[in-house]
């Protein structure tokens, strides 16, 4: 049974189609990454799933049951960490977490324990009596997370939780999400930081213009778009050797693309390990010396740009 099952979701803002026949399936225990440029429909999709926004068509099932605005029993099993920090400036860290936890948990005794655990989880123990205005950006983000997870939800939506935080806080947040996942929570994670998504998520959906363009693991997405590995070889500064090296590389069988950037030879190939050996052997045969050699597989960023295009968005 899928934790989230969305089928054919359509959401229009007058003429603009925000979600265009959007479908999604997230399995229990998964960390699911939702990637897309600004305005691609990620947050709209989440808000529709949570019944905060109306939608024109489609079916949404959570935990195997049809979701509706009054399914408070289902809502109690969900946590949300919104994009913007959503806490009360008038309440302390402890009070904020306690308040939001009270929206889900009735028992005061149980809640007290959950609040302590949430504070401990995000490492805000020494700030528990602080008001939000006295917290740094990173601490605020951690408070934002604590407010969303204190009631121990089975399904948690993280909507760009690491925006504008320092590397230490970011690292702490990512570790926390991994711990939540390890404890069995299903997580939907949206971000613009590709390396985060690649690090955290077991499956990723790339969406744009309200549509799901591709879904799968990083490897599946890479193979889906047919991106090759990249190899970069530093050649002698003499242009004659560089040009000769380019000519050699172009005729090798596993090389799909070759180019020069100054005296650096760039080649694309299906499998870097095999192609690299061939290129280096050919250069040796031609008595062309070389310096540093780099080899890297295609990144999620490459996949993302390949799917969504390189033109600037808002």
């Amino acid at each position: 049974m899928s934790t989230i099952e969305v089928k054919g979701l359509v959401k229009r803002y007058k003429e603009l189609i925000a979600l265009d026949d959007f479908s999604l399936s997230v399995e229990a225990g998964e960390v699911f990454g939702l990637l897309g440029p600004n305005g691609s429909g990620k947050t709209t999709a989440i808000n529709c799933i949570l019944q905060l926004l109306t939608y024109d068509r489609g079916e949404i099932r959570l935990f195997g049951e049809t979701m509706s605005p009054t399914r408070y029993d289902l809502k109690r099993r969900i946590g949300i960490v919104p994009q913007n920090v959503a806490v009360f400036p008038q309440l302390s860290v402890e009070e904020n977490i306690g308040y939001f936890c009270s929206l889900y948990v009735d028992s005061a005794v149980e809640r007290r324990g959950l609040v302590d655990q949430a504070i401990d989880f995000v490492g805000l123990e020494e700030f528990r009596r602080f008001r939000p205005r006295k917290l740094s950006g990173g601490l605020l983000r951690r408070l934002n997370i604590a407010c969303g997870i204190a009631h121990r939800p089975e399904l948690i939506f993280f909507d760009e939780p690491t925006v504008a935080v320092d590397p230490q806080s970011r690292n702490a947040i990512l570790e926390g999400i991994q711990r939540l996942s390890a404890s069995g929570s299903t997580i939907v994670y949206t971000s613009h930081y590709m390396e985060e998504v690649q690090q955290l998520c077991s499956r990723i959906m790339i969406m744009d213009h309200g549509r799901a363009h591709a879904t799968g693991t990083t490897a599946e997405l890479t193979s889906l778009v047919g991106l090759d590995d990249r190899v970069e070889i530093e050649l002698p500064a003499d242009p004659e050797f560089a040009d000769k090296g380019l000519e050699i590389a172009r005729v090798l069988p596993h090389i799909t693309q070759a180019s020069l950037n100054g005296n650096t030879l760039r080649v694309s190939c299906a499998r870097a390990s095999r192609a690299l050996a061939e290129v280096l052997a050919a250069l040796d045969d031609a008595q062309i010396t070389y310096g540093k050699v780099y080899s890297e597989p295609p990144t999620l960023n490459d996949v993302f740009l390949e799917i969504t295009g390189k033109e600037l968005r808002d």
């Binding site: 949570l50 905060l52 009054t70 408070y72 029993d73 809502k75 109690r76 099993r77 969900i78 949300i80 919104p82 994009q83 913007n84 920090v85 959503a86 806490v87 009360f88 939001f100 929206l103 889900y104 407010c147 969303g148 009631h151």
Partner: peptide
């Protein structure tokens, strides 16, 4: 109100009926 502030949006997603909220 979810459209008034992020806090409003977060509260609107709570697991309680509107009467109780």
């Amino acid at each position: 109100k979810a459209d008034a502030s992020p806090v409003g949006a977060r509260r609107s997603l709570g697991g309680q009926s509107w009467t109780r909220s």
